[in-house]
Design a protein around this nucleic acid. Structure first.
Ligand SMILES: [Mn+2]
Ligand SMILES: [Mn+2]
Ligand SMILES: [Zn+2]
Ligand SMILES: [Zn+2]
Lengths: 133, 133
DNA sequence: TCTGCAAATGCAACAATGTTGCAAAAGAAT
DNA sequence: ATTCTTTTGCAACATTGTTGCATTTGCAGA
């Protein structure tokens, strides 16, 4: 799947910002932040354009967002696996590497009477294979 | 347990800001945000003082922090239950009510080779008993 | 290939949240 | 009451994200 195909498939205009972002997502095994994308797209775009592109790609379901506390926000491609709701994310507290964990989880938690669950976010923090002590 | 006792027990100075915050935490069944605390402590304190008080109470382990995406940050008292295991938080997407779920969870997720887990955050989103449709 | 229109962009301004340095005030111990 | 330390308030700043508006671009149709 190419960036161009992804955009066409979702009937989105093929702009260089979107296409550049998608190429980086397609090439990366890890989630990427706005800053990481901008660094690599040296022909920088305005910050506003990035934010609006994120919104477009999120709305289309092409990418999804991973927020780690007040520390950072990253984005990753949505795959068939990650599209299934509750999947797990991993965050390395040393190098901030953030990954989608491709595992099926079946967790049921008893909520108080009258509460209703729509979704569940699971974030594991620890050290990645490069940062293990 | 009173606010005064909590502060003395942790050898913290008994200032009116800290004591006011703790009284609200002790009286609340839900997690509270900076704004909710400030509203109720009408004899408002400076924003900086709030942030520094949060840090003090967090460091002492008296409260813990619950971050919901880029939406909001709330705080709640640390109880014996919440201190122990990985515990779960609930966030109502309608009224933003945020609660600690007092349930024991034992979840093991297989991480990629070389990855090491330190902690796990679980956030359930949905509607609370007042907002159920 | 050219034209026209809707959509995307860049820029400036703004808001919310959180942090830091420093002088003044308050807490607690003597 | 005096002293010393910690906390506070204020101003300034950083980061992240949003909005309005004029300009530019992509793309469909001629
Ligand atoms: Mn993911
Ligand atoms: Mn909790
Ligand atoms: Zn790492
Ligand atoms: Zn609610």
């Amino acid at each position: 799947m190419t960036a161009k195909q992804l955009l066409q498939q979702h009937k989105l205009k093929r702009t260089s910002c979107r296409e550049g972002m998608l190429e980086l997502f397609l090439a990366s095994k890890e989630a990427l932040s706005e800053n990481e994308l901008r660094e690599q797209l040296s022909g920088s775009y305005d910050r506003t354009t990035f934010y609006r592109s994120f919104i477009t790609l999120l709305d289309a379901g092409i990418i999804h967002k991973i927020v780690v506390d007040n520390i950072l926000t990253k984005y990753a491609l949505t795959t068939p696996m990650t599209r299934e709701h509750q999947h797990v994310h991993f965050f390395c507290t040393h190098c901030e590497t953030t990954k989608c964990i491709q595992t099926d989880v079946e967790i049921t938690i008893q909520l108080p009477e009258g509460f209703h669950q729509d979704s569940m976010d699971i974030l594991i923090k620890g050290s990645c294979n490069h940062c293990k002590q």
